[in-house]
Amino acid sequence: MNIFRLVGDLSHLLAIIILLLKIWKTRSCAGISGKSQILFAIVYTSRYLDLPNFVSMYNTLMKIVFIAASYATVYLIYMKFKATYDHNHDTFRVEFLVLPSFVLALLINHDFTVLEVLWTFSIYMESVAILPQLFMVSKTGEAESITSHYLFALGSYRALYILNWIYRYTTEDHYDLIAIVAGIVQTVLYCDFFYLYITKVLKGKKLQLPA
């Protein structure tokens, strides 16, 4: 554990809490892509099947929180606050993300076993899981500030992991090429959003895309 990973994990946790609180407090999931949230639930489920392999208390606890929170979010969007779900704008074709991620996991993995292929699938899937949400923001041309904070925290987490991987490579000689390449792809997808967040949201303006 190093500072980059710890702050990355906390940023990830913060993102999940921000989203749950936003939906709960406003009793609405307007502007949130249910499809991205389903993809995240799939990501955590397929990645944390290794839960019985004990690494640390911290690790186990965080995994349980991420799985539980992702299902709670999906429940709030598709059941409890279903009436507020903006499905007309949530039209990204997720099969174009799920199928290629799965095929790639079958082809490029560390070990051809069920658990390992599913872990690899979850890494590829996570790198693109935010696309339905970003697509929704670009389609409506705007995002509430709280949604922007959520996206910023979520995007920062993988960027911080990249620093963690550089640190681990130099100090422990440890590296995982699959995670690194997917993590870079994931972070790059947020770059456009990061730019808008820094130039607009942090200056008190609403995140609005030029018409």
Binding site: D9, D50, N53, N59, K63, F66, W119, N164, D176
Partner: peptide, 10 residues
């Protein structure tokens, strides 16, 4: 030989 890849990150 059992080769298990360990993933210690989240």
């Amino acid at each position: 030989i059992e080769s298990v890849v360990t993933h210690d990150e989240l």
